[in-house]
């Protein structure tokens, strides 16, 4: 094939990319313009609302999204799940979301303090458990064993809500020093902790009780934390302060807090705040 033909193809490709980009721009403009006139009843057939959700919420929010979308007053919901601290950073760097469901108040405060999000609502709570591989290579019998030197402990990082709660629990157990020894591998969300334990690479980890509902749960052994170290994780949901979809976004939050929403959360192991 000669150069001209190649060049022609390249130009066609660039044009196609350009056209596609323009279309997206138009759609965005439409999406941004409609809500001013729109009410809950016209939510259907519109662009979905975007919900940034803590990693531990992914399964329950996926189901919540499909149930909410199926309602007559519902809207399509797109869930983007990651560690809450990653989501907060992405929002601070300009990512757009209509709702932010954070696993702790601190990560929500990061985006609230700069005015990106409005005051949130607590909608669920969770608690922590210690997990080990089924064969328990580190011989962890009680949570105190986590302090044993040489044990391969995996936690979510200190900025990850799950990691912050886990460190608080260790502190209440009087073994916070165990995680300061620089021997803890840090994961960027709680799912990574469960995976490392399920793979058998780590001797122990601390995850949410609700994480045990996942497929990996059968491959780990669970050790409960004593009441004194039972840290309660509280989930907050807040709406973007400048979303054009405030009605739909508030609708989703209201649904989560409704009887139906609460029973779904309870099915997944979450408690009410």
């Amino acid at each position: 094939m000669d150069c001209r033909r190649w060049f022609f193809l390249l130009c066609m490709g660039l044009c196609a990319t350009g056209i596609a980009a323009c279309e997206t721009g138009d759609q965005r403009a439409r999406r941004d313009a409609t809500p001013l006139a729109g009410g809950a009843s016209t939510n259907r057939n519109r662009a979905p609302i975007v919900v940034f959700a803590a990693a531990s919420l992914e399964a329950v929010f996926d189901e919540a999204a499909s149930r909410f979308a199926a309602r007559p007053d519902g809207t399509e919901v797109v869930i983007h799940a990651a560690g809450s601290q990653i989501l907060a950073t992405q929002l601070l760097e300009g990512a757009r979301a209509d709702l932010f469901a954070s696993a702790d108040a601190h990560q929500l405060d990061r985006v609230r303090d700069v005015g990106l999000f409005v005051a949130g609502t607590p909608f669920a709570t969770n608690s922590l458990v210690v997990v080990t591989p089924l064969d328990n290579p580190g011989h962890v019998q009680t949570p105190i064993d986590l302090a044993r030197p040489g044990l391969r402990l995996v936690l979510a990082g200190p900025d990850v809500p799950a990691g912050a709660y886990a460190r608080e629990a260790l502190q209440r157990l009087g073994i916070a020093g165990a995680v300061d020894a620089g021997r803890v591998s840090e994961e960027s969300d709680v799912r990574g902790v469960l995976a490392k334990v399920a793979l058998g690479e780590a001797d122990a980890g601390i995850v949410y009780r609700t994480d045990l509902g996942s497929a990996l749960a059968d491959t780990v052994r669970t050790i409960p934390l004593p009441a004194a170290a039972d840290v309660r994780a509280t989930y907050w949901i807040a709406r973007s302060s400048d979303t054009p979809r405030s009605v739909a976004a508030d609708g989703f939050t209201a649904w989560l807090l409704s009887t139906e929403g609460r029973s779904l959360l309870a099915e997944h192991g979450f408690s009410s705040p």
Partner: peptide
């Protein structure tokens, strides 16, 4: 190797 401060 994981993400262990000072080690990996």
């Amino acid at each position: 190797a994981g993400n262990v401060r000072g080690t990996t």
